[in-house]
Amino acid sequence: MGKAAREASRERLRQERQKAEERAKRTKVLAVVGAALAVVIVVVGGGYLVLSQQRAEEQEFANRYGSLPEQRVQQDGSVVLAEDGADAPVVEVYADYQCPHCKQFELTSGPTLQRLAAEGEVIVHYRPVSIFAQQPAPIGANSLRGAAAARAAADYGKFVQYNDLLFEHQPAEGAEGYSTEQLKEWGTEAGIDDPAFAERVDAESEVVDTFTGGYLDDLTAAAEKELGADRIQEMGLSGLIDWGQENGVDGSFLEGTYVREAIDSTSAVEERYPSGANAFGGTPAVYVNGTLLGNEAYSGNGIQEAVEQAGPGEVDTEPLSADGAAADASPQPDASP
């Protein structure tokens, strides 16, 4: 009896142990399958959210400019965004592509200005400048490359889109940015498919390299030797380049370039608003019918109010005619936006 009973109980124990093992294994399998399922859900669900958000943003970007009125390049390289024959206040926007506050302005108030322009409530006059042109590398070069590329985009009627893309990707101050590769890519993103745009970006970037890689130092050194600091200040960079041309610092590589245009625009605004309450003192500078806006420029509401309170204004530049652009060999935009 004893032996049989022992054997039976051993058998029972063995069976129970086996059952427990099986149960443990089943639990493990369930846990592992559950973990795998969680991985799938996280990857597919999370990835789907990210992808569809990206898509929504792209869609929004594509649609955002659908209702934009025509963009007309002016003789000085600035761009006027307005409904045909709009009788509305003129908002001048002076911005440097390397200036962080300009980015802030563009993010907060840019869309409002675009909307008001589409509604015929405002004439937006975009006047890019390069107040940082003489800053040490890479700030000066970034600023000039950005301005020149934006001007090239304006030739294709895509200035507003490109302007937004530049500010969206503004390099941190002191960081190398606005590379030719990026500048070309954003052109495509803005809807410019003419290879001449990429060529222009390359050419202008080479001009910037020449400008920052020696020329500016030579010019400054020559000027400091022969002119006083006050006189240099007074001449502005444009005047200084002209002076250098007559005094042995060859700046002919700048002739007819968009880099030169950006530099000239900068000197021009300093002359346009030299002193008083409306003096141009840096970027961004936003003028409504010639009156400088303060901090209210940094909100969509603020700028809308300023525009609503102003009467109709006059744009002080003339549009660039099709043959006027011929010297730059840049074709007029062939497609409507």
Partner: peptide, 24 residues
């Protein structure tokens, strides 16, 4: 079109780390 590449990627990940191998 959106989920298939993600699903494939999730399966690839699970196979790589060897989790629930039989079921994956």
């Amino acid at each position: 079109g959106y989920t298939l590449p993600l699903f494939e990627f999730a399966l690839a990940l699970l196979l790589l780390i060897g989790l629930a191998t039989r079921y994956v």
